[in-house]
Design a protein around this nucleic acid. Structure first.
Length: 486
DNA sequence: AAAAAAC
């Protein structure tokens, strides 16, 4: 069942693609290349000062950006048409405005592009602005790729929406908008999101003027039908967690409709599909939607992260799972950094939280049944470190980035909505919530039924990743493992 | 039966 992948490192024969007027580089490129070099020189000194401040780390280049890197050979790249793309060694090699470069170096503290950034950014930012399907490991710097791409394709003098980013959850919208605003700090580019409405206090009634819009489908669709969001000037459309956004039983209908609407208004709109996971089915579907797209893929066997230690915990029953939390996890909380406990249903999130609360174990919980303002508050407290343990449904399984999370507990092993099949992608995304920012992480999979064990066995073989087993009532063993890995 | 969201 292995998908055969074309490995094309060199350019393919010409396909008759001619550059035209609309294919000119974005503002800030070309005419200002000297200015770019100037600011790069100015910034060099700033960067060196920063380097001196963190002397204990010998290799800063990747750690400082909080990125995970993978060997070149594990990534398959396929370029379309006659375009040749040179990997960007430095951000200065890319057509970025001085203001954006400053944002990268000064505000974000980045030093050089990560692998995925070095290979995809030239593909994205070089005319004729082809579509891109890009897969890269959790924490490898995908957000920077598409945020930078959106910002660099906006013309600051045009006061209309020009870049759109669609995400599966409210939390991801908030997170991506925050990254975008930081990166845009030295530009005049405006931005908003579907989650920003609460701050504005009330329902939106005036058309959106902001140049970048980040959002979830429901409200975005509402804005479009009410003509509050004009699509005419949108030049770039990004799907974060793209395989999820194109899933048949989920967001596919809304996503495809939006793509079609946009292409009708502007046939040249650039489509970017980013995710850490694309199974064969989603890969095919993505390619059928973005036919001329450049592609970057990672084999699934290379996807499971070695920086995250994974253990199966065989429990006699569901009660024993709770005892693991109470007797082993919570008592060691302070040393652990932060913990996310994933459960399958909203009800499980609610009841487990209630039980832990009743017995004096301090934690919070989040799921789609909570009010948006409650969700915002719970997430903010967790980000602040006020709360150490968070119980969550899969609302946070993808993309949620809190650097202090070292431990992920799969209280319920991830299964598909049929209630039986292993949810391979969900597993990978869940455990990827730990070990952020170049830190280590651990994941415990609590199993109590034969089905649980079957599911974990299949997940383990799918990713070709052996998972060791821990005894559920042996605290010393847990401690030993935690001390070793964290 | 997770997730987005709505007048």
């Amino acid at each position: 069942m292995q998908a055969s992948q074309e490995d094309v490192s060199a350019a393919k024969p010409a396909d008759g693609d001619v550059q035209n007027d609309e294919d000119r580089p974005p503002p800030g490129f070309g005419e200002s290349s000297d200015a770019v070099k100037d600011i790069a020189r100015q910034l060099e000194s700033t960067v060196k000062v920063n380097e001196g401040e963190t002397v204990d780390e010998p290799d800063l280049s990747l750690k400082s950006a909080g990125l995970r890197e993978q060997p070149e050979a594990e990534i398959t790249t396929k370029t379309e048409g006659d375009s040749i793309y040179a990997a960007a060694q430095k951000f200065e090699d890319l057509p970025l405005s001085p203001e954006l470069l400053k944002g990268l170096y000064v505000e974000m503290g980045f030093k050089q592009p990560s692998k995925i950034q070095a290979s995809t950014l030239p593909m994205i930012l070089t005319p004729p602005y082809r579509d891109l399907i890009a897969q890269a490991h959790n924490g490898s710097g995908k957000t920077t790729c598409f945020v930078l791409s959106m910002l660099s394709r906006v013309d600051p003098s045009v006061p209309f929406p020009q870049a759109l980013c669609i995400c599966p959850t409210r939390e991801l919208v908030v997170q991506n908008l925050n990254v975008l605003r930081r990166m845009a700090k030295f530009t005049t580019i405006s931005s908003t999101s579907t989650a920003t409405e609460l701050e504005d206090g009330g329902i939106r009634r005036t058309p959106i003027k902001e140049q970048v819009v980040v959002g979830t489908h429901g409200k975005l669709k509402n804005w479009v039908t009410k003509r509050l969001l004009a699509l005419e000037n949108v030049a770039i459309l990004v799907f974060d967690e793209a395989d999820e956004m194109l899933k048949a039983d989920a967001f596919a209908d809304d996503s495809v409709r939006l793509i079609n609407q946009l292409r009708k208004k502007n046939p040249k709109v650039q489509l970017l599909l980013f995710s850490a996971t694309f199974n064969d089915e989603m890969k095919r579907f993505a390619m059928s939607i973005a036919r001329q797209a450049n592609q970057v893929f990672v084999a699934k066997e290379k996807l499971s992260l070695d920086v995250i230690a994974q253990y199966n915990v065989r429990c006699p029953d569901r009660t024993a799972k709770t005892r693991v939390l109470k007797e082993i996890i919570f008592p060691n909380c302070d040393r652990l950094g932060q913990t996310i406990i994933f459960v399958r249903t909203r009800e499980a999130a609610r009841t487990l939280h209630a039980e832990m609360d009743r017995d004096g174990y301090k934690c919070t919980s989040i799921s789609g049944e909570k009010a948006p303002e409650d969700r915002d508050r719970v997430v903010q407290e967790f980000r602040d470190g006020t709360t150490k343990v968070l119980i969550s449904t899969d609302v946070l399984s993808r993309g949620f980035d809190v650097s202090q999370v070292t431990l992920v507990i799969n209280y319920d092993v991830p299964i598909e909505r049929d209630g039986r099949s292993p949810a391979y992608e969900t597993y990978l995304h869940r455990i990827g919530r730990s070990g952020r920012f170049g830190r280590k992480g651990a994941a415990f999979n609590l199993m109590s039924t034969a089905q649980d064990m079957e599911v974990m066995a299949r997940i383990s073989s799918y990713f070709n990743k052996p998972i060791a087993e821990l005894k559920w009532d042996d605290e010393d063993q847990f401690i030993e493992v935690l001390n070793k890995t964290l």
